[in-house]
Design a protein around this nucleic acid. Structure first.
Lengths: 249, 249
DNA sequence: ATATATTTTGCTGTATTATGCATTTTATTT
DNA sequence: AAATAAAATGCATAATACAGCAAAATATAT
Protein backbone atom coordinates (compact mmCIF):
# COMPACT_ATOMS: atom_id res chain seq x y z
CA UNK A 1 0.00 0.00 0.00
CA UNK A 2 1.26 3.42 -0.95
CA UNK A 3 1.92 5.97 1.71
CA UNK A 4 -0.38 8.51 0.10
CA UNK A 5 -3.14 6.00 -0.16
CA UNK A 6 -2.83 5.17 3.49
CA UNK A 7 -2.87 8.81 4.44
CA UNK A 8 -6.00 9.33 2.39
CA UNK A 9 -7.68 6.54 4.26
CA UNK A 10 -6.65 8.03 7.54
CA UNK A 11 -8.06 11.35 6.43
CA UNK A 12 -11.24 9.66 5.33
CA UNK A 13 -11.70 8.00 8.69
CA UNK A 14 -11.10 11.28 10.45
CA UNK A 15 -13.63 13.06 8.28
CA UNK A 16 -16.11 10.28 8.80
CA UNK A 17 -15.87 9.78 12.55
CA UNK A 18 -14.39 13.14 13.48
CA UNK A 19 -11.73 11.35 15.51
CA UNK A 20 -9.50 8.33 15.33
CA UNK A 21 -7.16 6.44 17.58
CA UNK A 22 -3.72 5.63 16.29
CA UNK A 23 -4.02 2.09 17.60
CA UNK A 24 -7.26 1.55 15.70
CA UNK A 25 -5.81 2.89 12.49
CA UNK A 26 -2.73 0.72 12.84
CA UNK A 27 -4.96 -2.31 13.06
CA UNK A 28 -7.27 -1.24 10.23
CA UNK A 29 -4.41 -0.44 7.90
CA UNK A 30 -2.26 -3.31 9.11
CA UNK A 31 0.85 -1.26 9.69
CA UNK A 32 2.80 -0.48 12.81
CA UNK A 33 1.62 2.28 15.05
CA UNK A 34 4.82 4.14 14.29
CA UNK A 35 3.86 4.40 10.67
CA UNK A 36 0.42 5.70 11.54
CA UNK A 37 1.97 8.16 13.90
CA UNK A 38 4.30 9.41 11.22
CA UNK A 39 1.45 9.70 8.73
CA UNK A 40 -0.70 11.62 11.14
CA UNK A 41 2.23 13.87 11.88
CA UNK A 42 2.59 14.68 8.21
CA UNK A 43 -1.11 15.24 7.74
CA UNK A 44 -1.11 17.51 10.73
CA UNK A 45 1.81 19.47 9.31
CA UNK A 46 -0.18 19.81 6.09
CA UNK A 47 -3.17 21.06 8.10
CA UNK A 48 -5.37 18.25 6.92
CA UNK A 49 -6.21 17.15 10.42
CA UNK A 50 -5.31 17.89 13.99
CA UNK A 51 -3.04 15.57 15.85
CA UNK A 52 -3.89 14.94 19.47
CA UNK A 53 -2.60 12.60 22.09
CA UNK A 54 -3.29 9.07 20.98
CA UNK A 55 -5.03 9.97 17.76
CA UNK A 56 -6.30 12.75 15.57
CA UNK A 57 -9.41 14.86 15.16
CA UNK A 58 -11.00 16.47 12.16
CA UNK A 59 -10.30 20.09 11.36
CA UNK A 60 -13.99 20.74 10.84
CA UNK A 61 -16.04 20.29 7.79
CA UNK A 62 -15.49 23.23 5.54
CA UNK A 63 -11.72 23.36 5.46
CA UNK A 64 -10.77 21.01 2.71
CA UNK A 65 -13.87 19.93 0.87
CA UNK A 66 -14.95 22.32 -1.85
CA UNK A 67 -12.73 25.25 -1.21
CA UNK A 68 -9.52 25.61 -3.09
CA UNK A 69 -6.81 27.37 -1.26
CA UNK A 70 -5.34 28.99 -4.32
CA UNK A 71 -7.93 31.64 -4.99
CA UNK A 72 -6.48 34.83 -6.35
CA UNK A 73 -6.84 37.79 -4.01
CA UNK A 74 -8.82 35.78 -1.50
CA UNK A 75 -8.31 38.36 1.21
CA UNK A 76 -10.03 41.08 -0.76
CA UNK A 77 -12.78 38.80 -1.89
CA UNK A 78 -13.51 37.78 1.67
CA UNK A 79 -13.83 41.42 2.66
CA UNK A 80 -16.26 41.97 -0.20
CA UNK A 81 -18.28 38.93 0.70
CA UNK A 82 -18.52 40.05 4.30
CA UNK A 83 -19.97 43.37 3.21
CA UNK A 84 -22.39 41.63 0.89
CA UNK A 85 -23.67 39.39 3.68
CA UNK A 86 -24.93 42.48 5.53
CA UNK A 87 -27.42 43.06 2.70
CA UNK A 88 -29.06 39.71 3.20
CA UNK A 89 -32.43 39.66 4.90
CA UNK A 90 -34.22 36.86 6.67
CA UNK A 91 -36.54 35.10 4.25
CA UNK A 92 -35.13 36.88 1.21
CA UNK A 93 -35.03 35.55 -2.32
CA UNK A 94 -31.71 36.15 -3.99
CA UNK A 95 -29.55 35.14 -6.89
CA UNK A 96 -25.87 34.35 -6.55
CA UNK A 97 -23.65 34.39 -9.59
CA UNK A 98 -20.60 32.23 -10.25
CA UNK A 99 -16.99 33.20 -9.72
CA UNK A 100 -14.73 33.09 -6.71
CA UNK A 101 -16.04 36.26 -5.11
CA UNK A 102 -19.64 35.06 -5.20
CA UNK A 103 -18.38 31.73 -3.92
CA UNK A 104 -17.02 33.52 -0.89
CA UNK A 105 -20.39 35.14 -0.37
CA UNK A 106 -22.09 31.77 -0.51
CA UNK A 107 -19.58 30.41 1.96
CA UNK A 108 -20.13 33.22 4.42
CA UNK A 109 -23.92 33.04 4.57
CA UNK A 110 -24.75 32.50 8.25
CA UNK A 111 -26.17 29.15 9.25
CA UNK A 112 -29.24 30.66 10.83
CA UNK A 113 -30.27 32.78 7.87
CA UNK A 114 -33.31 31.63 5.94
CA UNK A 115 -32.98 32.29 2.25
CA UNK A 116 -34.09 31.13 -1.15
CA UNK A 117 -31.07 31.19 -3.43
CA UNK A 118 -31.07 30.84 -7.17
CA UNK A 119 -27.80 30.20 -8.88
CA UNK A 120 -26.33 29.17 -12.22
CA UNK A 121 -23.06 28.04 -10.71
CA UNK A 122 -22.36 24.43 -9.81
CA UNK A 123 -19.73 25.22 -7.18
CA UNK A 124 -21.93 27.87 -5.60
CA UNK A 125 -24.83 25.43 -5.50
CA UNK A 126 -22.62 22.84 -3.81
CA UNK A 127 -21.52 25.40 -1.29
CA UNK A 128 -25.07 26.51 -0.58
CA UNK A 129 -26.10 22.95 0.18
CA UNK A 130 -24.08 23.14 3.36
CA UNK A 131 -26.33 25.93 4.64
CA UNK A 132 -29.15 24.37 6.65
CA UNK A 133 -31.66 27.16 6.09
CA UNK A 134 -31.04 27.95 2.47
CA UNK A 135 -33.33 26.62 -0.23
CA UNK A 136 -31.18 26.10 -3.31
CA UNK A 137 -32.65 26.34 -6.77
CA UNK A 138 -30.37 25.65 -9.66
CA UNK A 139 -31.15 27.29 -12.97
CA UNK A 140 -30.43 24.53 -15.44
CA UNK A 141 -28.93 24.64 -18.88
CA UNK A 142 -25.82 23.69 -20.73
CA UNK A 143 -22.84 23.97 -18.44
CA UNK A 144 -19.83 26.01 -19.47
CA UNK A 145 -16.69 23.98 -18.85
CA UNK A 146 -14.53 26.91 -17.83
CA UNK A 147 -16.99 28.97 -15.82
CA UNK A 148 -18.90 25.99 -14.43
CA UNK A 149 -22.19 27.81 -14.84
CA UNK A 150 -25.31 27.29 -16.90
CA UNK A 151 -25.31 29.15 -20.17
CA UNK A 152 -27.38 29.17 -23.32
CA UNK A 153 -30.94 29.77 -24.34
CA UNK A 154 -32.35 27.39 -21.82
CA UNK A 155 -30.79 29.07 -18.82
CA UNK A 156 -31.78 32.48 -20.12
CA UNK A 157 -35.32 31.36 -20.61
CA UNK A 158 -35.54 30.01 -17.07
CA UNK A 159 -34.19 33.25 -15.72
CA UNK A 160 -36.93 35.12 -17.54
CA UNK A 161 -39.44 33.31 -15.38
CA UNK A 162 -38.09 34.37 -12.02
CA UNK A 163 -37.72 37.62 -10.14
CA UNK A 164 -35.49 37.93 -7.11
CA UNK A 165 -35.05 40.66 -4.52
CA UNK A 166 -31.31 40.89 -4.91
CA UNK A 167 -28.84 39.44 -7.31
CA UNK A 168 -25.17 39.32 -6.45
CA UNK A 169 -23.06 39.22 -9.54
CA UNK A 170 -19.42 39.32 -10.48
CA UNK A 171 -17.90 40.59 -13.68
CA UNK A 172 -14.76 40.14 -15.69
CA UNK A 173 -14.20 43.84 -16.23
CA UNK A 174 -15.82 47.01 -14.97
CA UNK A 175 -15.43 50.61 -16.01
CA UNK A 176 -17.37 53.71 -14.99
CA UNK A 177 -17.86 54.72 -18.57
CA UNK A 178 -18.11 51.42 -20.43
CA UNK A 179 -19.96 49.53 -17.74
CA UNK A 180 -19.60 45.81 -17.14
CA UNK A 181 -17.88 43.84 -19.86
CA UNK A 182 -16.77 40.25 -20.41
CA UNK A 183 -14.45 38.21 -22.52
CA UNK A 184 -17.13 35.65 -23.27
CA UNK A 185 -20.30 36.31 -25.21
CA UNK A 186 -22.33 33.48 -23.68
CA UNK A 187 -21.59 34.71 -20.20
CA UNK A 188 -22.78 38.19 -21.12
CA UNK A 189 -26.10 36.81 -22.28
CA UNK A 190 -26.88 35.06 -19.01
CA UNK A 191 -25.66 38.01 -16.95
CA UNK A 192 -28.09 40.24 -18.83
CA UNK A 193 -30.85 37.82 -18.06
CA UNK A 194 -29.86 37.74 -14.39
CA UNK A 195 -29.99 41.51 -14.12
CA UNK A 196 -33.38 41.57 -15.79
CA UNK A 197 -34.62 39.01 -13.27
CA UNK A 198 -33.57 41.09 -10.27
CA UNK A 199 -35.25 43.95 -8.48
CA UNK A 200 -31.84 45.11 -7.32
CA UNK A 201 -28.42 44.14 -8.59
CA UNK A 202 -25.30 44.12 -6.47
CA UNK A 203 -21.93 44.01 -8.15
CA UNK A 204 -19.05 42.33 -6.31
CA UNK A 205 -15.67 43.26 -7.71
CA UNK A 206 -12.14 43.59 -6.44
CA UNK A 207 -10.69 47.03 -7.07
CA UNK A 208 -8.11 45.57 -9.42
CA UNK A 209 -10.85 45.15 -12.00
CA UNK A 210 -11.90 48.78 -11.89
CA UNK A 211 -11.29 50.77 -15.06
CA UNK A 212 -10.83 47.74 -17.25
CA UNK A 213 -12.89 46.69 -20.21
CA UNK A 214 -13.30 43.99 -22.75
CA UNK A 215 -15.15 42.97 -25.85
CA UNK A 216 -18.73 42.26 -24.88
CA UNK A 217 -20.91 44.45 -22.74
CA UNK A 218 -23.20 43.17 -20.02
CA UNK A 219 -24.76 46.47 -18.94
CA UNK A 220 -24.11 50.08 -18.05
CA UNK A 221 -22.98 51.04 -14.59
CA UNK A 222 -26.39 52.61 -14.06
CA UNK A 223 -27.94 49.15 -14.19
CA UNK A 224 -26.12 48.34 -10.96
CA UNK A 225 -27.71 49.41 -7.68
CA UNK A 226 -24.84 48.63 -5.35
CA UNK A 227 -21.18 48.07 -5.99
CA UNK A 228 -19.01 46.39 -3.39
CA UNK A 229 -15.24 46.45 -3.49
CA UNK A 230 -12.70 45.67 -0.81
CA UNK A 231 -11.94 49.39 -0.60
CA UNK A 232 -13.40 51.91 1.78
CA UNK A 233 -16.42 53.54 0.08
CA UNK A 234 -14.66 56.92 0.35
CA UNK A 235 -11.56 55.77 -1.48
CA UNK A 236 -10.50 58.00 -4.35
CA UNK A 237 -10.28 55.11 -6.74
CA UNK A 238 -14.06 55.02 -6.69
CA UNK A 239 -14.53 58.66 -7.59
CA UNK A 240 -15.46 58.03 -11.19
CA UNK A 241 -18.40 55.96 -10.04
CA UNK A 242 -19.90 58.72 -7.93
CA UNK A 243 -21.42 60.34 -11.00
CA UNK A 244 -23.94 57.55 -11.14
CA UNK A 245 -26.86 56.66 -8.98
CA UNK A 246 -25.00 53.79 -7.42
CA UNK A 247 -24.44 52.85 -3.83
CA UNK A 248 -20.85 52.15 -2.93
CA UNK A 249 -20.07 49.76 -0.14
CA UNK B 1 5.12 -1.45 -27.68
CA UNK B 2 5.26 2.24 -28.29
CA UNK B 3 6.11 4.61 -25.50
CA UNK B 4 2.95 6.62 -26.05
CA UNK B 5 0.79 3.57 -25.92
CA UNK B 6 2.43 2.43 -22.73
CA UNK B 7 1.94 5.78 -21.09
CA UNK B 8 -1.69 5.77 -22.10
CA UNK B 9 -2.14 2.43 -20.43
CA UNK B 10 -0.44 3.65 -17.30
CA UNK B 11 -2.71 6.66 -17.27
CA UNK B 12 -5.72 4.44 -17.83
CA UNK B 13 -4.82 2.25 -14.89
CA UNK B 14 -4.35 5.28 -12.71
CA UNK B 15 -7.70 6.73 -13.72
CA UNK B 16 -9.40 3.46 -13.07
CA UNK B 17 -7.89 2.43 -9.78
CA UNK B 18 -6.78 5.82 -8.53
CA UNK B 19 -3.35 4.42 -7.82
CA UNK B 20 -0.74 2.13 -9.27
CA UNK B 21 2.42 0.49 -8.09
CA UNK B 22 5.44 0.74 -10.33
CA UNK B 23 6.20 -2.92 -9.76
CA UNK B 24 2.71 -3.93 -10.88
CA UNK B 25 2.86 -1.81 -13.98
CA UNK B 26 6.27 -3.17 -14.91
CA UNK B 27 4.84 -6.65 -14.78
CA UNK B 28 1.64 -5.80 -16.61
CA UNK B 29 3.45 -3.97 -19.38
CA UNK B 30 6.38 -6.36 -19.40
CA UNK B 31 9.04 -3.71 -19.24
CA UNK B 32 11.63 -2.90 -16.62
CA UNK B 33 10.64 -0.91 -13.60
CA UNK B 34 12.98 1.85 -14.71
CA UNK B 35 11.01 2.36 -17.87
CA UNK B 36 7.79 2.59 -15.94
CA UNK B 37 9.43 4.97 -13.55
CA UNK B 38 10.56 7.19 -16.39
CA UNK B 39 7.12 7.11 -17.98
CA UNK B 40 5.48 8.04 -14.73
CA UNK B 41 8.00 10.81 -14.29
CA UNK B 42 7.04 12.25 -17.66
CA UNK B 43 3.35 11.94 -16.98
CA UNK B 44 3.88 13.65 -13.68
CA UNK B 45 5.76 16.48 -15.38
CA UNK B 46 2.80 16.81 -17.75
CA UNK B 47 0.47 16.95 -14.76
CA UNK B 48 -1.41 13.88 -15.89
CA UNK B 49 -0.86 12.09 -12.62
CA UNK B 50 1.00 12.44 -9.41
CA UNK B 51 4.13 10.45 -8.86
CA UNK B 52 4.70 9.18 -5.36
CA UNK B 53 7.16 6.87 -3.74
CA UNK B 54 6.57 3.42 -5.17
CA UNK B 55 3.89 4.35 -7.65
CA UNK B 56 1.52 7.05 -8.74
CA UNK B 57 -1.90 8.36 -7.79
CA UNK B 58 -4.50 10.07 -9.91
CA UNK B 59 -4.71 13.83 -9.81
CA UNK B 60 -8.21 13.83 -8.45
CA UNK B 61 -7.32 11.53 -5.64
CA UNK B 62 -5.96 14.06 -3.19
CA UNK B 63 -8.01 17.08 -4.11
CA UNK B 64 -11.45 15.57 -4.37
CA UNK B 65 -10.85 12.98 -1.74
CA UNK B 66 -14.28 13.08 -0.16
CA UNK B 67 -15.22 10.56 -2.82
CA UNK B 68 -12.75 7.79 -2.48
CA UNK B 69 -12.76 6.77 1.09
CA UNK B 70 -16.30 7.12 2.20
CA UNK B 71 -17.94 5.32 -0.64
CA UNK B 72 -19.50 2.10 0.36
CA UNK B 73 -18.58 -0.89 -1.80
CA UNK B 74 -16.51 1.18 -4.17
CA UNK B 75 -14.90 -1.85 -5.77
CA UNK B 76 -18.23 -3.29 -6.85
CA UNK B 77 -19.43 0.05 -8.08
CA UNK B 78 -16.33 0.47 -10.18
CA UNK B 79 -16.96 -2.89 -11.80
CA UNK B 80 -20.52 -1.85 -12.57
CA UNK B 81 -19.41 1.46 -13.99
CA UNK B 82 -16.87 -0.24 -16.22
CA UNK B 83 -19.59 -2.43 -17.67
CA UNK B 84 -21.85 0.57 -18.14
CA UNK B 85 -19.16 2.44 -20.05
CA UNK B 86 -19.21 -0.26 -22.72
CA UNK B 87 -22.78 0.75 -23.56
CA UNK B 88 -21.77 4.29 -24.41
CA UNK B 89 -21.62 5.20 -28.07
CA UNK B 90 -19.77 7.99 -29.76
CA UNK B 91 -22.05 10.98 -30.13
CA UNK B 92 -24.74 9.53 -27.90
CA UNK B 93 -27.20 11.49 -25.80
CA UNK B 94 -27.57 10.07 -22.33
CA UNK B 95 -28.81 10.83 -18.86
CA UNK B 96 -26.81 10.06 -15.74
CA UNK B 97 -28.56 9.86 -12.40
CA UNK B 98 -27.14 10.81 -9.01
CA UNK B 99 -25.66 8.43 -6.48
CA UNK B 100 -22.23 6.98 -6.00
CA UNK B 101 -22.53 4.28 -8.65
CA UNK B 102 -23.54 6.75 -11.32
CA UNK B 103 -20.77 8.99 -10.10
CA UNK B 104 -18.33 6.20 -10.83
CA UNK B 105 -19.78 5.91 -14.31
CA UNK B 106 -19.30 9.63 -14.86
CA UNK B 107 -15.75 9.35 -13.63
CA UNK B 108 -14.89 6.49 -15.98
CA UNK B 109 -16.18 8.05 -19.19
CA UNK B 110 -13.18 8.00 -21.54
CA UNK B 111 -11.65 11.32 -22.43
CA UNK B 112 -12.03 10.76 -26.14
CA UNK B 113 -15.73 9.91 -26.07
CA UNK B 114 -18.10 12.52 -27.43
CA UNK B 115 -21.35 12.62 -25.50
CA UNK B 116 -24.22 14.85 -24.54
CA UNK B 117 -25.01 14.17 -20.90
CA UNK B 118 -28.04 15.33 -19.02
CA UNK B 119 -28.00 15.06 -15.26
CA UNK B 120 -29.87 16.18 -12.16
CA UNK B 121 -26.93 15.64 -9.88
CA UNK B 122 -24.56 18.42 -8.90
CA UNK B 123 -21.63 16.12 -8.13
CA UNK B 124 -22.12 14.21 -11.36
CA UNK B 125 -22.23 17.46 -13.28
CA UNK B 126 -19.00 18.58 -11.65
CA UNK B 127 -17.39 15.29 -12.52
CA UNK B 128 -18.57 15.48 -16.12
CA UNK B 129 -17.00 18.89 -16.54
CA UNK B 130 -13.60 17.23 -16.42
CA UNK B 131 -14.41 15.29 -19.59
CA UNK B 132 -13.22 17.31 -22.57
CA UNK B 133 -15.68 15.87 -25.07
CA UNK B 134 -18.81 15.74 -22.98
CA UNK B 135 -21.47 18.40 -23.30
CA UNK B 136 -23.06 18.75 -19.88
CA UNK B 137 -26.64 19.86 -19.49
CA UNK B 138 -27.96 20.28 -16.01
CA UNK B 139 -31.65 19.85 -15.45
CA UNK B 140 -32.43 22.63 -13.01
CA UNK B 141 -34.80 22.74 -10.11
CA UNK B 142 -34.83 22.84 -6.37
CA UNK B 143 -31.84 20.97 -5.03
CA UNK B 144 -32.32 18.24 -2.47
CA UNK B 145 -29.86 18.75 0.36
CA UNK B 146 -29.24 15.08 1.01
CA UNK B 147 -29.24 13.69 -2.51
CA UNK B 148 -27.70 16.77 -4.10
CA UNK B 149 -29.98 16.44 -7.10
CA UNK B 150 -32.73 18.56 -8.62
CA UNK B 151 -36.19 17.60 -7.47
CA UNK B 152 -39.65 19.06 -7.68
CA UNK B 153 -42.10 20.08 -10.33
CA UNK B 154 -39.62 22.20 -12.18
CA UNK B 155 -37.12 19.43 -12.71
CA UNK B 156 -39.86 17.01 -13.70
CA UNK B 157 -41.22 19.47 -16.20
CA UNK B 158 -37.83 19.95 -17.79
CA UNK B 159 -37.37 16.23 -18.05
CA UNK B 160 -40.66 15.99 -19.90
CA UNK B 161 -39.12 18.05 -22.66
CA UNK B 162 -36.15 15.82 -23.39
CA UNK B 163 -35.63 12.35 -24.75
CA UNK B 164 -32.30 10.60 -24.40
CA UNK B 165 -30.96 7.38 -25.94
CA UNK B 166 -29.94 5.87 -22.65
CA UNK B 167 -30.48 6.77 -19.05
CA UNK B 168 -28.28 5.31 -16.36
CA UNK B 169 -30.06 5.28 -13.05
CA UNK B 170 -29.48 4.01 -9.57
CA UNK B 171 -32.07 3.00 -7.04
CA UNK B 172 -32.39 2.65 -3.31
CA UNK B 173 -33.98 -0.78 -3.46
CA UNK B 174 -34.70 -3.28 -6.18
CA UNK B 175 -36.77 -6.45 -6.19
CA UNK B 176 -37.76 -8.70 -9.06
CA UNK B 177 -41.37 -8.66 -7.95
CA UNK B 178 -41.81 -5.20 -6.48
CA UNK B 179 -39.56 -3.37 -8.90
CA UNK B 180 -37.54 -0.30 -8.02
CA UNK B 181 -38.45 1.44 -4.78
CA UNK B 182 -37.18 4.37 -2.74
CA UNK B 183 -37.34 5.82 0.70
CA UNK B 184 -38.06 9.30 -0.59
CA UNK B 185 -41.17 10.35 -2.47
CA UNK B 186 -39.61 13.31 -4.26
CA UNK B 187 -36.84 11.16 -5.61
CA UNK B 188 -39.34 8.69 -6.98
CA UNK B 189 -41.11 11.43 -8.89
CA UNK B 190 -37.99 12.58 -10.71
CA UNK B 191 -36.87 9.01 -11.36
CA UNK B 192 -40.21 8.33 -13.02
CA UNK B 193 -39.74 11.39 -15.17
CA UNK B 194 -36.24 10.25 -16.09
CA UNK B 195 -37.44 6.84 -17.20
CA UNK B 196 -40.17 8.45 -19.25
CA UNK B 197 -37.58 10.65 -20.91
CA UNK B 198 -35.41 7.71 -22.00
CA UNK B 199 -35.60 5.39 -24.95
CA UNK B 200 -33.73 2.80 -22.91
CA UNK B 201 -33.13 2.66 -19.19
CA UNK B 202 -30.11 1.04 -17.59
CA UNK B 203 -30.20 0.23 -13.90
CA UNK B 204 -26.91 0.22 -12.01
CA UNK B 205 -27.14 -1.58 -8.71
CA UNK B 206 -24.81 -3.51 -6.46
CA UNK B 207 -26.04 -7.02 -5.77
CA UNK B 208 -26.51 -6.20 -2.13
CA UNK B 209 -29.59 -4.19 -3.05
CA UNK B 210 -31.25 -7.06 -4.85
CA UNK B 211 -34.40 -8.39 -3.23
CA UNK B 212 -34.94 -5.35 -1.07
CA UNK B 213 -37.86 -2.95 -1.10
CA UNK B 214 -39.18 0.20 0.43
CA UNK B 215 -42.15 2.49 0.62
CA UNK B 216 -42.44 4.29 -2.70
CA UNK B 217 -42.30 2.67 -6.08
CA UNK B 218 -40.42 4.08 -9.04
CA UNK B 219 -41.30 1.46 -11.62
CA UNK B 220 -41.64 -2.23 -12.38
CA UNK B 221 -38.64 -4.30 -13.34
CA UNK B 222 -40.09 -4.52 -16.82
CA UNK B 223 -39.50 -0.80 -17.24
CA UNK B 224 -35.78 -1.47 -17.11
CA UNK B 225 -34.03 -2.56 -20.29
CA UNK B 226 -30.65 -3.46 -18.83
CA UNK B 227 -29.57 -4.19 -15.31
CA UNK B 228 -25.91 -4.08 -14.38
CA UNK B 229 -24.55 -5.52 -11.16
CA UNK B 230 -21.02 -6.38 -10.17
CA UNK B 231 -21.91 -10.06 -10.53
CA UNK B 232 -21.38 -12.28 -13.51
CA UNK B 233 -24.58 -12.25 -15.61
CA UNK B 234 -24.93 -16.00 -15.08
CA UNK B 235 -24.84 -15.75 -11.31
CA UNK B 236 -27.67 -17.55 -9.55
CA UNK B 237 -28.54 -14.50 -7.49
CA UNK B 238 -29.95 -12.99 -10.66
CA UNK B 239 -32.23 -15.90 -11.47
CA UNK B 240 -35.41 -14.16 -10.35
CA UNK B 241 -34.80 -11.44 -12.88
CA UNK B 242 -34.61 -13.83 -15.81
CA UNK B 243 -38.39 -14.04 -15.98
CA UNK B 244 -38.47 -10.53 -17.37
CA UNK B 245 -37.44 -9.12 -20.69
CA UNK B 246 -34.35 -7.56 -19.19
CA UNK B 247 -30.76 -7.73 -20.25
CA UNK B 248 -28.35 -8.65 -17.49
CA UNK B 249 -24.81 -7.40 -17.66
C1' DA C 1 21.45 1.18 -48.59
C1' DT C 2 24.74 2.56 -45.37
C1' DA C 3 26.49 5.27 -41.89
C1' DT C 4 25.63 8.33 -38.25
C1' DA C 5 22.96 10.64 -34.62
C1' DT C 6 19.30 10.27 -31.37
C1' DT C 7 16.27 8.10 -28.40
C1' DT C 8 14.89 4.43 -25.65
C1' DT C 9 15.70 0.80 -22.64
C1' DG C 10 17.71 -2.19 -19.11
C1' DC C 11 21.39 -2.84 -15.97
C1' DT C 12 24.68 -1.59 -12.31
C1' DG C 13 25.92 0.46 -8.06
C1' DT C 14 24.85 4.02 -4.80
C1' DA C 15 21.71 7.24 -2.42
C1' DT C 16 17.32 7.97 -0.48
C1' DT C 17 13.02 6.76 1.64
C1' DA C 18 9.82 3.95 4.24
C1' DT C 19 8.97 0.97 7.85
C1' DG C 20 9.25 -1.64 12.13
C1' DC C 21 11.51 -2.49 16.42
C1' DA C 22 13.90 -1.30 20.78
C1' DT C 23 14.83 2.29 23.90
C1' DT C 24 14.39 6.61 26.06
C1' DT C 25 11.68 10.62 26.99
C1' DT C 26 7.39 12.84 27.69
C1' DA C 27 2.51 13.11 28.74
C1' DT C 28 -1.65 11.33 31.05
C1' DT C 29 -4.07 8.95 34.49
C1' DT C 30 -4.81 7.00 39.03
C1' DA D 1 4.31 9.68 43.19
C1' DA D 2 3.61 5.59 40.74
C1' DA D 3 1.74 3.36 36.90
C1' DT D 4 0.53 3.57 32.36
C1' DA D 5 0.16 5.19 27.70
C1' DA D 6 1.96 7.72 24.03
C1' DA D 7 5.64 10.21 21.60
C1' DA D 8 10.23 10.84 20.16
C1' DT D 9 14.69 8.93 19.00
C1' DG D 10 18.03 5.97 16.97
C1' DC D 11 18.93 2.16 14.26
C1' DA D 12 18.51 -1.94 11.03
C1' DT D 13 16.36 -3.63 7.03
C1' DA D 14 14.07 -3.59 2.88
C1' DA D 15 12.15 -1.21 -0.85
C1' DT D 16 12.57 2.36 -3.97
C1' DA D 17 14.85 6.33 -6.55
C1' DC D 18 18.48 7.98 -9.19
C1' DA D 19 22.67 8.64 -12.01
C1' DG D 20 25.64 6.77 -15.27
C1' DC D 21 26.53 3.60 -18.81
C1' DA D 22 26.10 0.39 -22.66
C1' DA D 23 23.21 -2.14 -25.75
C1' DA D 24 19.32 -1.90 -28.64
C1' DA D 25 16.01 0.43 -31.30
C1' DT D 26 14.73 4.25 -33.94
C1' DA D 27 15.34 8.27 -36.63
C1' DT D 28 18.10 11.08 -39.75
C1' DA D 29 21.47 12.16 -42.99
C1' DT D 30 24.61 10.96 -46.66
Amino acid sequence: MLKEERQQRILGEVELHNRILLTDMAEILDVSIDTVRRDVKELDAANKLQKVHGGAISMGFTTYSARNNNIYALEQKTIIAEKAVTLLKQGGVIFIDGGTTCMELARLIPDDLELTCFTLSLPVAMQLLTKPNVTVIFVGGQISKEAQISIGANAIHHLSEIRVDYSFIGTGYVDALFGLTEFDWDIVQVKKAVIKASKKTVLLSISEKLNSQHRYKTCDISAINTMITELDPDNNLLNLFRNYDIRLL
